[in-house]
């Protein structure tokens, strides 16, 4: 349990590259303990990349990410393991181990890291499956699940160690509105019950405003809005307003380069 209003994650001027291509530009924000932090933005703007930095799957430059005040770029193996034992992650594609059943997927971290008896682990697995609305699917293989079910099984796995910090990449993509609303409630009650801190990437405006305590809106690797849901709603940045009112781009933003590409095709 963590007391609220404590800064858990601090990001300062984070830049990120794939090869020469820059995908994150000078990001700065803070995530407070026992809050739901929502990350929104257009597809391809770098949200999943940002999560990778926060969980240590992509190395961050020194001085850009602090967790509980400590710069993660200098962490050693033991410090990372320590951190990884405290967090849970839902990957955008679920990333279930496809050679194991759903139940074995969820049980794996418990089997490796705890001395819990088998019966206890089985009950815990069944409880986690029930929380995400997948009761009775434990014996199935990941390939036998639908996309939305795979996502929820991944969430159940992320919850198996009762993490202090939960990172979720688009929990409700591919889900019907009823199930998606159920997941929103689950995330809220995880925060409420366990005092969890959540970092949630989502495209669903409604769900973002329902669960978020703090949010950022990203566009092309930059943060264009950062604040509480009310502050974001009041912001009169045109791009943010366009995002919130779900208006499509009026014209193709790279119209000239699009035309030049078309012409290149003809010339060859």
């Amino acid at each position: 349990m963590t007391e609220p209003d404590r800064e858990l994650i601090r990001v300062r001027g984070l830049n990120s590259f794939y090869g020469r291509k820059q995908v994150l530009r000078d990001l700065s924000f803070s995530v407070e303990a026992n809050r739901i932090f929502v990350i929104m933005g257009m597809s391809g703007c770098g949200k999943s990349t940002l999560l990778k930095h926060l969980v240590g799957l992509k190395p961050s430059p020194p001085g850009s990410i602090y967790i509980e005040g400590k710069d993660i770029s200098g962490w050693n193996h033991a410090q990372w393991n320590n951190y990884w034992l405290r967090i849970g992650i839902l990957f955008q594609n679920g990333a279930l181990f496809n050679s194991m059943t759903v139940a074995q997927n969820i049980a794996l971290p418990l089997m490796v890291h705890t001395n819990l008896p088998k019966e206890i682990i089985e009950i815990m697995v069944e409880m986690k499956l029930h929380m995400v609305g997948l009761s009775g699917t434990g014996a199935l293989m990941p390939s036998q699940l639908s996309g939305g079910m795979r996502k929820r099984a991944g969430l159940a796995r992320a919850l198996s160690m009762d993490p202090e910090i939960l990172f979720v990449d688009e929990p409700s993509s591919g889900l019907d509105p009823i199930t998606a609303a159920g997941l929103d409630e689950l995330l809220l009650s995880l925060k409420e019950t366990f005092g969890m801190t959540l970092v949630v990437v989502t495209h669903e405006l409604e769900s973002a405003f329902r669960i978020g305590d703090q949010m950022v809106v990203m566009d092309q690797g930059r943060i264009i809005a950062y604040g509480t849901p009310e502050e974001i709603r009041q912001m009169n940045d045109p791009r943010v307003q366009q995002f919130l009112s779900r208006r499509p781009d009026e014209e193709h933003r790279d119209y000239d380069s699009y035309i030049s590409r078309l012409c290149k095709v003809k010339r060859r």
């Binding site: 990372w80 990884w84 034992l85 990957f91 594609n93 181990f97 496809n98 794996l108 490796v112 160690m161």
Partner: peptide, 20 residues
């Protein structure tokens, strides 16, 4: 092939983040 699939499906990343 099995490990390669685990790599491209981010399952290896998932293992790391479970401290495995």
């Amino acid at each position: 092939a099995e490990i390669g699939i685990m790599r491209i499906d981010e399952q290896i990343d998932a293992l790391r983040c479970m401290a495995i």
